[in-house]
């Protein structure tokens, strides 16, 4: 584990772009967490003295939205939700995907064939449309967004983990454990899963931006977070509505969303190159 952490640090040091991405991501996260503490506005408070859709000023750093709410605070508070959805959604997909993939890959045979056929069937479904339906029909809980998004993304993870598990199972140290009579559950827990960690970390890093993107998509359609709470997707939708009047309301959330996704993608690419050279020959 220590060596792996070390190689991650090395990977970042050798790739200045990835290092910059990591720094940017950290800065955005810290800003989203701590930034709202340093101004007097609350994200849902309306400034009745100021104007609606005001341009950036000393009073409102990013301007105000069409209801006169401070956009600086809203952008950062929205960022908390977007980033949290990204993390939790990824975690859900990770748990399902690793468990499913490891079992299918380890057990093999007909169970594996059946489990992977099920993944193939699910793969072909237009999932996002089902999620849209789900949101429309069952109300718009944030929790549902987490679960739905996580439940979509596990398919990729399951396929990758299954492939890795099969490769690991063929390796000598696993054969050695099998012939020494170690129980299958113990082999999976002690020999397979720890060795999957590198691949899982890489793909988790690449899943986070996908999840954030999906949440933003749903919120853009008005199906994600509900007012007065907000996220970057919802802010972009609000901003797009009256961008001719107040372009700042579109540009700032778009900037934050774009910068976060870009950083995550750059970071994921670099980690994949460093830890999983086979995927990126």
């Amino acid at each position: 584990m220590n060596r792996r952490a070390h190689s991650v640090a090395d990977a970042l040091r050798q790739r200045p772009v990835a290092l910059a991405a990591a720094v940017a991501l950290l800065a955005i996260t810290l800003l989203c967490i701590a930034g709202p503490w340093f101004v007097d506005w609350r994200f849902d408070a309306i400034d009745f003295d100021g104007t609606w859709s005001a341009p950036p000023s000393a009073m409102h750093w990013f301007g105000t939205d069409s209801l006169g709410r401070d956009l600086y605070v809203r952008t950062l508070v929205g960022g908390r939700i977007s980033l949290a959805v990204g993390l939790v959604g990824t975690l859900v997909s990770l748990l399902i995907g690793v468990a499913y993939g490891a079992v299918a890959g380890y057990v093999g045979g007909r169970v594996d064939a059946l489990m992977m056929r099920a993944v193939d069937v699910l793969y072909a479904l237009p999932f996002l449309f089902l999620v849209i339906l789900l949101m429309l029909l069952f109300g718009r809980h944030l929790l549902l967004v987490f679960v739905a998004i996580g439940a979509i993304n596990w398919l990729d993870m399951a396929r990758i983990v299954r492939g890795e598990t099969r490769a690991l199972k063929a390796r000598d140290f696993v054969s050695a454990a099998i012939v020494s009579g170690v129980s299958p559950s113990r082999i999976v827990a002690h020999h397979i899963v720890p060795n999957l960690l590198g691949v899982v970390v890489v793909y988790a890093t690449l899943t986070v931006p996908q999840v954030i993107l999906m949440e933003a998509f749903l919120s853009f359609l008005g199906l994600g977070v509900q007012a007065p709470a907000t996220s970057w997707g919802a802010l972009v939708a609000d901003g797009a509505r009256d961008m001719e009047l107040a372009p700042a309301a579109l540009i700032f959330p778009a900037l934050f969303l774009g910068a976060s996704l870009l950083s995550l993608n750059l970071l994921g690419d670099a980690l994949r190159d460093a830890l999983d050279p086979r995927q990126h020959r």
Partner: peptide, 15 residues
């Protein structure tokens, strides 16, 4: 390319 990947089309469209 990686920038293009990172700008969702619903953000790009209004921009």
């Amino acid at each position: 390319a990686v920038t293009g990947l990172s700008i969702p089309n619903f953000v790009l469209a209004p921009l």
